[in-house]
């Protein structure tokens, strides 16, 4: 592929749950190395879209291409091996394990055993979690658990990172620090998609943004353009 080709390209993506259509034909693409935000009202299909991208669920119709290759039928572990990674909306860390071993499991897949302690220390440093490696997850604050979940997602050094509400439940300071972490990851060339409800956070990231509404792509542009869009105000931003 050339640099101009999108790294992810979806065409006509449809997902139906029984009679309910969560996605109704989404054509979406993102360039390599892009930091891209996805916003929209509750029930717009944002999390469903991520589940389809990660291969956790299969689309009812449509296709997903990654670097020009059709990956629609691949399961989540196969997509992870290609370079996808996700942080779910409902966080999902391993509650019975220590911080160290929460990171150990994703690292083990991609690194030699001897390298793992160093990798854990590096990740904890990046995520402002140094010194917590022997804590069990239940001893962490909510913001720390969010960071740990992000750390587990980036442990494999993915090419595409999907972050579903990375700042949910965080304090203002923690939200700012999270934006800083995401900007630093983006600077390494990682392609990052972020779902968020926190407009201050998205304004802070100030990057290309897509609005989903009723399972369709409603608007796309820079965040300033989106903020100035009257229709987006009516369906979503005006309601916040």
């Amino acid at each position: 592929m050339t640099d101009n080709e999108p790294i992810i390209d979806t065409s006509g993506l449809v997902k139906q749950y029984g009679g309910i259509a969560a996605l109704q034909g989404v054509d979406f693409s993102v360039d390599r190395g892009e930091l891209h935000c996805i916003i929209g009202p509750n029930g717009a299909g944002k999390s469903t879209f991520f589940k389809l991208l990660m291969g956790i669920e299969r689309p009812t119709a449509g296709a997903i291409h990654y670097k020009g290759r059709d990956v629609t039928s691949l399961g989540s572990f196969e997509r992870a091996r290609l370079g996808f990674s996700v942080k779910f909306q409902n966080i999902r860390v391993y509650p019975d394990l220590t911080v160290y071993h929460n990171l150990f499991i994703p690292l083990r897949r991609h690194h030699r055993m001897k390298k793992i302690p160093g990798q854990v220390a590096e990740l904890l440093g990046e995520l402002r979690l140094s010194g917590t490696e022997n804590e069990t997850v239940s001893n962490l604050s909510h913001g720390q658990i969010q960071w740990l979940a992000i750390g587990m997602s980036i442990a494999a050094e993915p090419e595409v990172l999907l972050l579903d509400e990375p700042t949910a439940g965080m304090s203002d300071d923690e939200t700012r620090e999270t934006a800083e972490i995401i900007r630093r990851l983006s600077a390494t060339g990682m392609t990052i998609l972020v779902i968020e409800h926190d407009m201050a956070f998205i304004r802070d990231l100030n990057t290309r943004t897509t609005v989903l509404h009723y399972g369709r792509l409603f608007a796309q542009g820079t965040f300033s353009e989106i903020e100035a869009n009257e229709e987006v105000h009516q369906i979503y931003l005006g309601t916040l």
Binding site: F77, S85, P95, L97, I105, R109
Partner: peptide
């Protein structure tokens, strides 16, 4: 233990 606690999450790490 990872599979026990959250099998789908573990799968998204490439297992």
């Amino acid at each position: 233990v990872g599979v026990r606690e959250d099998s789908h999450r573990t799968e998204t790490f490439g297992y």
